[in-house]
Nucleic acid binder design. Structure first.
Length: 270
DNA sequence: ACCACAACCTGGCCGC
DNA sequence: TGCGGCCAGGTTGTGG
């Protein structure tokens, strides 16, 4: 579920309760959560380490530990992280837990069990193939235009490709294309510079707006404290099939593209 | 290089 | 009530 704005919201809200805290151990009830290293090695290497900072790259959360290793978590579709007192009854679907020296726990709840956890010395081992951060200064309209020009792919699936741009998912791809008035089936190399600039601006604006609203709770995404985001009320096309376009009144259509639901306005996305 | 599709999982919803 | 089918915010691997 979580895309860049939801992961960013989670990162920001985990900093206060976690930065400076020391991890004392790791409990795991679903081994496939743990990608690397082995569970026993993971437990040994993570215990006693202090969390120095928490950051985000694409949809990955990065916990920098003293000693130089990085704990990396991907929430995939249904992952959720919370920090609670260790004596609070365990919630359903909590499969991985990091215990803390202050009597609290970082709990990784994950209904569909797609989430993944890594402990690495070199982050590139996990993040090496990611495309540019869409909110970074190096991600300019000119760069996006050049990136689009070198490919000949349908736009919507290309925007979901994390090696192309990191962090965009199904909701915000649809929203950005609608805001830029570009049809999701357009081929990337057919955009002129003005269209690339519109798409670039739309991507940045929609992501920033979503972050400012704490992410979108479409189904079961929740902030770390359990509250919902506010972005779902500001979506223009995602989840609005058959409802009138807010810009031109044409009913929003939903098609299947690359196996993913794709929402667009046939009236103003040509 | 690009695309379609299956797989990984569980739960919610809809129609019968 | 029950059951089958379909859907879901993500990613990876396979085969054409």
């Amino acid at each position: 579920m979580p895309e860049l704005p939801e992961v960013e919201t989670t990162v920001r809200e985990l900093r206060a309760p976690l930065v400076g805290q020391t991890i004392t151990g790791l409990r795991n009830h679903w081994l496939r959560h743990i990608v690397t290293p082995s569970l026993s090695s993971f437990q040994e290497r993570v215990s006693g380490r202090a969390i120095q900072s928490i950051d985000r790259r694409g949809k990955y959360l990065l916990f920098s530990l003293d000693g130089g290793e990085t704990l990396i978590i991907h929430l995939k579709m249904t992952g959720h992280l919370s920090v609670v007192p260790a004596d609070l009854p365990i919630e359903d679907h909590v499969h991985t837990v990091f215990t803390l020296a202050n009597g609290h726990e970082l709990r990784f709840r994950d209904t569909r069990k797609f989430g993944r956890v890594y402990l690495v010395r070199n982050q590139d081992q996990v993040l090496g193939n990611l495309g540019p951060e869409p909110l970074s200064t190096e991600f300019t309209a000119e760069l996006l235009h050049e990136m689009l020009r070198r490919r000949k792919r349908v736009l919507k699936p290309l925007l979901l490709d994390q090696t192309f741009i990191a962090g965009i998912g199904n909701i915000y791809a649809d929203e950005a294309l609608h805001q830029a008035k570009i049809h999701p089936l357009r081929k990337s190399n057919t955009l002129n510079i003005d269209e690339s600039k519109s798409l670039h601006a739309a991507i940045q604006e929609i992501l920033l707006l979503a972050i400012s609203r704490g992410g979108a709770t479409v189904d079961d995404y929740r902030r770390p404290d359990g509250t919902k985001g506010e972005m779902q009320a500001a979506l223009s096309v995602y989840g609005r099939e058959d409802e009138p376009c807010l810009r031109c009144g044409t009913p929003i259509e939903r098609i299947l593209l690359g196996g993913r639901s794709t929402h667009y306005c046939p009236g103003c996305q040509k």
